[in-house]
Design a protein around this nucleic acid. Structure first.
Lengths: 110, 110
DNA sequence: TGACGTACTACGTCACACATAGTACGTTCG
DNA sequence: CGAACGTACTATGTGTGACGTAGTACGTCA
């Protein structure tokens, strides 16, 4: 199980990387995060909904109205070019962070 | 350069892993973090001092009075058994987090 | 003598993940 | 047939951690 503190700062990266593959809506994104992490992390609804709104406000994703199978309205999100660029930056930063943190824990057996 | 947001949540891990090797004091820890990260991350004084106090409050480190070469008082910190156990947990969590985040960014070239 | 390095403290701010709570509609099942 | 469950989303408030800004105090060195 991964704590929220451990994942903090990487929700945006997760969402953007999922939207890179295809547009989606918040509820589905939450399910995808659950399954991609192998149920190790279950994002809270509020966390995800505020994340997509934040990303939209930053111009990294755009929303458009869609509908579910039953016809109920649903808000879809699509990644923007700016979002793609941001994702690449975040991925680069993630790789740096990984190598840096790993330097500290060398020799610590878990 | 690594942002504070990227490293957030791992300051404790860095400090504990340094104290695992030998006792130290806050100012020196800051320098070590700077050098171990290859100057990619420079922790702020306030961040580090509040981190060691937090760790002390949690019983993960203990402090004792020492002195600098010039005789000035200096506060040293030593990791406790509880701190060691906590470090191992954090390292395990870090490994989980790494593998999970990596699953998302597969296919994203940075 | 005054800049710089060392060593530390106090107080305030902000962002993000979460807690808690609620709305609304469709399906399913006993 | 109605009550639980899943879907899809909104509103508001809280806590924690890293930071900003600021200041203290002493030693060395040019």
């Amino acid at each position: 199980m991964i704590s929220a503190d451990a994942i903090r700062g990487y929700v945006d990266l997760m969402v953007l990387s999922l939207l890179r593959q295809r547009p989606s809506y918040a509820y589905e994104l939450a399910q995808q995060i659950h399954s991609v992490t192998g149920a190790e992390y279950t994002i809270k609804q509020t966390t995800l909904y505020s994340a997509v709104k934040r990303l939209e406000g930053a111009g990294l994703v755009t929303s458009y109205a869609g509908a579910s199978e039953s016809g109920k309205p649903r808000t879809y999100y699509r990644i923007t070019d700016e979002g793609l660029a941001h994702l690449e930056l975040k991925v680069a930063e993630w790789r740096d962070t990984k190598s840096v943190v790993d330097r500290f824990i060398e020799g610590v057996e878990a």
